[in-house]
Every structure is written in C-alpha cells, then in structure tokens.
Simulated assay, not measured.
Amino acid sequence: MIFKNDSLDPAAVFACATSLRDACDQSAKLQDLSLSELFQGMDQFYREAMRIAALFEEWACKHVVFDETEDVWPYLLEDKFGAACLQRMSVEDLSGFDAEDCPDVAMKLLLPLNYIDAQPRLPLDVKAINPVPASPFTHWRIQTIRCLSGDDNFEPMVYGDDPFDSEYEPSILALYGVNAEGLVEHIKDFDRYADAVAFVGKIAPGVEFPEEPVVKAQGI
C-alpha cells in the first residue's frame, strides 16, 4: 500500500491492520461469521483494515501526546488496537469507521491526548493551586461538562465518554473553585480553554494552568 501522508509510520499502520485483522478473525469465528461474505471478499476486508489503520495513525499523529506514553507505539497498537475497535463497533459495521470513531478508540487504549478548543471537545479535567491565600478556594478546576439533549442538568464529561455522542448537546467548559474539603463551587462557563485560563488569572493572579493541557485517564 502506498501512503499518501509521508508522516505516517508504516510500522504503526501495519501494527493496527494486523491487530484489527486478528481481532476480526477471532470475533468472526466466535459468531460463526464469514469475513469474506461480510466484506464481499477477503481482499476488500484487508483494504478496510488498512484504511482504518492509516486513518487512526493519521489522527493519532495530531492528537496523541507521545512524550507521555511509555509503550512502544507499534507494539501497543499490535496488542490492543483491534480489540479497542471492536469495543467501539461490531465487525459488520467496520466499513463505517471514520475519524469520529478515533477519539473513542484512543481512550479505550488509555492514550494521553492533547486538548484542542474545538467541537466536539475532549473530556478535559485540570486543576491548579490557588495562589491567593485569603481565598476560600485552595484550587481551581476547569472541566468539560455537557447535558442530554432537551435537558438542562449538566454532568461532567469524563475520560472514555464519546465526544460525538448524539444524545448530548455540545459540551462546554466549567470553571470551579475547590475548597479544602474538596467541595466545588461553580464559577463560570466558557467555550474556550484559553478564555477560562485568562479569567481565572484575573481573579487569582499567578495561577498556573498548563498552556497545552493533556486529557488523561484517571490515575494515569
């Protein structure tokens, strides 16, 4: 296969395709399905596997924070990519795999992702120490929240939640103050992370939020 994007790592693409092939083969056997019949021939199945592999690798090059991973990238993909894809969708639906599926698969792989101010936004949750000693808050917190369509009760969007879930309204960023007991108080909502950081910087001069926040699984 000729890669149109020179930045793609052929080893990573091959690892993704191999992992997906093996996972699909195992799933098909368990369900007594024929990959050849599902994809109108094995050649088409392999094309789909390579398409998905190249698509994910291209997405990962833009969104995964590789400096914060300890795994060898192709080895991780070969071990876990196929299973993560089939957690996202069934073998029969793989022909519909597109860029909207990549964030969910990446989070199933527990990858650290760079946060970008765009819709749909990833589940951000960052805290910073409050440098103002007289404040009732010991920390500030910026977190992605969203609500179900037709509802007005917002809930935190956590790592692993599908950013493209059609049951939810577009997400927003909420700024909270956190006291010594861990209780939170909602301060203000924002559309952009940079705006939230700028606002809290005015009421708490010297606060240090990361310029390029990273979306991580809890405990990682």
Score class of each variant (00 low, 15 high):
residue 1 M to L: 12
residue 3 F to M: 07
residue 3 F to L: 12
residue 4 K to I: 15
residue 9 D to E: 14
residue 9 D to T: 04
residue 13 V to I: 07
residue 14 F to D: 15
residue 19 S to N: 07
residue 19 S to T: 08
residue 20 L to K: 00
residue 21 R to W: 08
residue 22 D to H: 00
residue 22 D to Q: 00
residue 27 S to P: 03
residue 28 A to F: 06
residue 29 K to R: 09
residue 30 L to Y: 03
residue 31 Q to I: 04
residue 32 D to L: 14
residue 33 L to H: 09
residue 38 L to E: 02
residue 39 F to A: 00
residue 40 Q to M: 14
residue 42 M to G: 04
residue 43 D to G: 13
residue 44 Q to I: 13
residue 45 F to D: 03
residue 45 F to V: 02
residue 46 Y to Q: 11
residue 47 R to D: 13
residue 48 E to A: 11
residue 51 R to M: 05
residue 52 I to Q: 02
residue 53 A to P: 00
residue 55 L to E: 09
residue 59 W to G: 02
residue 60 A to V: 09
residue 64 V to H: 02
residue 64 V to D: 03
residue 65 V to M: 09
residue 68 E to V: 04
residue 79 D to W: 08
residue 80 K to V: 10
residue 81 F to C: 00
residue 81 F to P: 00
residue 82 G to E: 05
residue 82 G to P: 07
residue 86 L to Y: 05
residue 95 S to W: 04
residue 96 G to F: 13
residue 99 A to V: 12
residue 101 D to P: 03
residue 101 D to G: 12
residue 106 A to N: 01
residue 106 A to F: 04
residue 108 K to D: 01
residue 108 K to L: 06
residue 110 L to C: 10
residue 110 L to H: 00
residue 112 P to Y: 02
residue 114 N to K: 15
residue 115 Y to P: 01
residue 119 Q to T: 12
residue 119 Q to A: 14
residue 121 R to T: 06
residue 121 R to N: 04
residue 121 R to E: 06
residue 131 P to H: 03
residue 132 V to E: 13
residue 133 P to W: 08
residue 136 P to W: 02
residue 137 F to L: 06
residue 140 W to N: 01
residue 142 I to H: 03
residue 143 Q to C: 12
residue 144 T to Y: 01
residue 151 D to P: 01
residue 151 D to E: 15
residue 153 N to M: 12
residue 153 N to H: 13
residue 160 G to C: 10
residue 161 D to Q: 09
residue 166 S to L: 15
residue 169 E to W: 09
residue 171 S to T: 07
residue 174 A to M: 13
residue 178 V to C: 04
residue 179 N to M: 09
residue 194 A to F: 05
residue 195 D to T: 12
residue 196 A to I: 05
residue 198 A to H: 06
residue 202 K to S: 01
residue 204 A to K: 04
residue 211 E to P: 03
residue 216 K to H: 07
